[in-house]
Write a protein that binds this DNA or RNA. Structure first.
Lengths: 192, 192, 192, 192
DNA sequence: TATGAATGAGTGTTCATTCAT
DNA sequence: TATGAATGAACACTCATTCAT
């Protein structure tokens, strides 16, 4: 007698997650193109063939990883869309960003590396916008209320700064004094 | 009449430059791994075999590109090492940065894409430091004289900001209002 | 109340038939090698595993299809073995051939495609002979009584002609005027 | 010093021919899908990779084989387009057909097998028409002058007959009395 | 009886690199 | 100096078949 559909579903989603985890860490470590399906399968302790039972192609696997990652980020970085964020909330968001950088280390590394691979940029750009546009809007709003000149550009600059910090930190975590940077950033943008 | 050794050397370095140019534009456009030696040779109008006469391997070619690119950058962004940069000089440096971003577009794209490809990161990190450390030192110096708290971290933040702006601009030049950003940046950091 | 062995047997053979039908149509449509077990199982609304409960292997399934198809053909094209076919009977046989071509369209397509796939030719050749030899014998008999020179070769030629017509018609049904061909064939071989 | 372009061209066309020959015989023997690039390369005594230096894909190789084969056939079976073929010419054509069947044995086998593989039918159908349509026209013409009823259908029937004979002969050459068939065919269609 | 997860050998294809010329 | 034919290891992907449940 076969397993119930529920059992199958559970097996499927568990194994999918195992594959996603293995793939994410390899993609982050070696880059999307250099991490081969063979390596991923080996790391996930499955056969190459099975990969294709769960994801119809390498790119589909990547897409699933991105969906999964962005969902998690959207969840843990819940943007307040009804404007008027207080300084405390702003500080909280900055803190969230830095926390996420550490917790989703591999994901962010992958994110940066994809953005730079022209053939894959489209894939990630689209999914990213869902999360980045609201962030920009919030920043603009915040700077507007702070009476900053050209708050839209200021928001863009702040966004770029976060990108730059993430980029530098992820590429050489041991050399980058992330805590000091965070503190200074908060001082710089809020406490005055 | 046979050529002098100098003429040979010149021909050799000219051809090398042709290959470097072809490779740089393809690496930037398609990514290091996706740009094949065949494509590069075709673009440079030489045979595949000849490539290996000038460069030991694909990675050696990349290395040469990086050397060449950083040399050019060092040259056009001549850091004043005897401290005490004035505001004018600081503004000039920022302007230089933005100019370079456009003029060495392909190189910077490649730079970002390599930084993120772990297998190649080492290659680029090393060469980059030669240019980045003095810049950081200069920034620190400048912020120190401006009596900023923790000028070292401030310098790091400014460096990250430049990275972030470069990253965002290069990835989607048409969507990023680079001129506005530059203006605002100068206002923000100098004109107080 | 549990089912009787007969009921089980019936269910079994019904399911077998479903699989055979699904496989036949896919084999004909896509070719034996291009039609995968997965596709067949999906079309038959069963699991891949169950397929192997009913048929030992893909080739065994093919073999069953051929058995089934030839049986049906033998049945609907009941060769009169006691010689002396009349012109009317002969005409009837020709008509039967053309009818079968349409009714067992998929089967004939498969038949031609297998005959040509050397690895599978043996399988089909053997089964085919059972049906083709008596037909040839009958043809020879008929032509003998018609006082045709070398009636054996004439029978072979007629058989080849039927093959050729079938082949051409099945490969491009819409372009081949099958009815005209049938009429002309009957005129040619009988009405004189 | 490199070879001259002419030398390279010669190497290329010779090797191409070697590959085509190896592939044609394997395609004919095992079928297009079952004959793998590995097998072809082994038979041609080259590496798998080199195949792709000469043909950009397996299908391109097939296409080249078909072009090559049809060209040869068109050449050796030079259709007289200015009507009025005599009985002698007609007999000559029939003889040519049978000769070609033997001389281009592998090609005809491949031809039949492709026609039956739905995914490849288009490829061969197109190229074939170039040769088959003039033949049909010639046949129609001939039968017209012979005052046969419905000469167009008669031509189609004759074409089908040739197909059927070819099909049967190629599939089991040792069992099919091709010479007798040819003789009878000529008797049947001409000598009276 | 029935499921679909799992395997592994196979496929066509790419590409950095070597080498005879 | 210069060519491009040649290699071989790697790649993403497919599929008939097995097996625990």
């Amino acid at each position: 007698m076969p397993r119930t559909p529920e059992q199958y579903e559970e097996i499927r989603s568990e194994k999918k997650q195992i594959i996603i985890d293995a793939a994410l860490s390899l993609f982050a470590e070696k880059g999307y193109h250099s991490a081969s399906i063979s390596m991923i399968a080996k790391k996930a302790n499955i056969s190459k063939g099975l990969m294709y039972n769960y994801f119809e192609s390498k790119e589909a696997l990547l897409s699933a990883i991105l969906d999964h990652g962005f969902k998690q980020i959207l969840y843990s970085f819940d943007i307040n869309k009804d404007n008027n964020i207080s300084d405390e909330e702003f500080e909280h968001y900055i803190n969230s960003m830095f926390t996420m950088l550490n917790e989703n280390n591999s994901f962010w590394k992958l994110y940066f590396s994809l953005f730079v691979q022209p053939s894959l940029q489209e894939l990630v750009a689209q999914k990213m916008m869902e999360w980045y546009m609201p962030l920009l809007a919030m920043l603009k709003d915040y700077f507007e209320r702070k009476c900053v000149d050209d708050p839209e550009t200021e928001a863009l600059i702040f966004g770029s700064l976060l990108d730059g910090i993430g980029f530098n930190y992820l590429m050489a975590p041991s050399l980058y004094p992330i805590e000091k940077v965070k503190k200074q950033l908060i001082n710089k943008y809020i406490k005055r």
